[in-house]
Design a protein around this nucleic acid. Structure first.
Length: 279
DNA sequence: AAGGAAGCCAACCGCAAGCGC
DNA sequence: CGCGCTTGCGGTTGGCTTCCT
């Protein structure tokens, strides 16, 4: 038998939505509400796939969607949340009222990621210049637009991952609801610094910054996380060694598959819990 | 002025979680 | 418990716009 396709591919409109299609969708949802996306197109008389209707509504037509430029405050928040959550755009969007995950994802891919990469490359260039002066790696136009560079510059490729395992350095112990160093057993606040200095790259090149996902942390630690300077390489990722192709790894622009990490605290926190902390 | 490169963003695609039966 | 369906998510694509040479 098999599963029926989400929508019949034939006879459906594709591409950009027209104003009349938008109106039909809006009118239908006004009356019947959201949901039942699969049946919506047929009931509403739209020649669109249900997924397409849902996407159009959620990303564009929904009344509470905020249009217009991302503000500096929003950008700062996105950066911090991304540092904490990785490419979990829906969670990030949940903290930005009126913004959609798609919008934030696009904004990240086109603006923030690039900006951070540029800044890091500029920073690296002071060390990199002497040895790699001819690579053009950090070449920038005066306008700030990156020059076309041949060579080993990789595009930013982030990968979403559902972190189920957390790597903790052996120096840390979980004690009374906190991670503490064996040496100091300090508070979670001081721990942040301790942890930063202790974190090391995983031998099999796991440069992930998302190892903190699903990690059980108290509010104070979360506050520290959100207030960390994203451009401070000595954050979580201190000591992370960039591989040959990715000079900006230590900003968390590249995440990795959590399955490669060793387990210490499995399933410590679910997404919903993380959301609770963020609220 | 024109052609190509890069930027931008809406939309699509495939996968997986969650749910009901 | 297993299966199928629905929904949501994140990565990718395609086309229009803007910028640069």
């Amino acid at each position: 038998m098999g599963r029926s396709p989400c929508c019949a591919k034939e006879g459906l409109n594709r591409g950009a939505w027209t104003a009349s299609e938008d109106k039909v969708l809006i009118d239908y949802i006004k009356i019947h509400g959201e949901g039942k996306w699969r049946n919506l197109p047929r009931n509403a008389g739209l020649k669109r796939c249900g997924k397409s209707c849902r996407l159009r509504w959620l990303n564009y037509l929904k009344p509470d969607i905020k249009r217009g430029n991302i503000t500096n405050d929003e950008e700062e928040l996105i950066i911090r949340l991304h540092k904490l959550l990785g490419n979990r755009w829906s969670l990030i969007a949940g903290r930005l009222p009126g913004r959609t995950d798609n919008e934030i994802k696009n904004y990240w891919n086109t603006k923030i990621g690039k900006k951070l990469k540029t800044q890091q490359c500029q920073k690296n260039s002071t060390h990199f210049n002497q040895a790699h002066d001819k690579t053009g790696l950090h070449a920038l136009k005066s306008s700030g637009r990156p020059m076309k560079v041949k060579g080993n510059v990789s595009p930013i490729r982030t990968k979403a991952s559902r972190c189920r395992r957390v790597v903790m350095p052996p120096e840390l112990q979980y004690n009374d609801g906190q991670w503490q160093t064996k040496s100091t057993m300090g508070t979670s606040t001081s721990l942040l610094h301790e942890f930063s200095s202790l974190s090391q790259p995983i031998p099999d090149k796991d440069n992930s910054t998302d190892f903190m996902l699903d990690f059980q942390m108290d509010e104070q630690l979360l506050s520290d996380l959100l207030n960390m300077d994203i451009l401070q390489p000595n954050g979580f990722d201190n000591g992370v060694v960039s591989d040959d192709n990715n000079t900006c790894d230590d900003y968390g622009l590249l995440s990795s598959n959590s399955s490669r990490t060793d387990m210490v605290a499995d399933d410590a926190v679910r997404d919903s819990d993380l959301c609770q902390w963020l609220l």
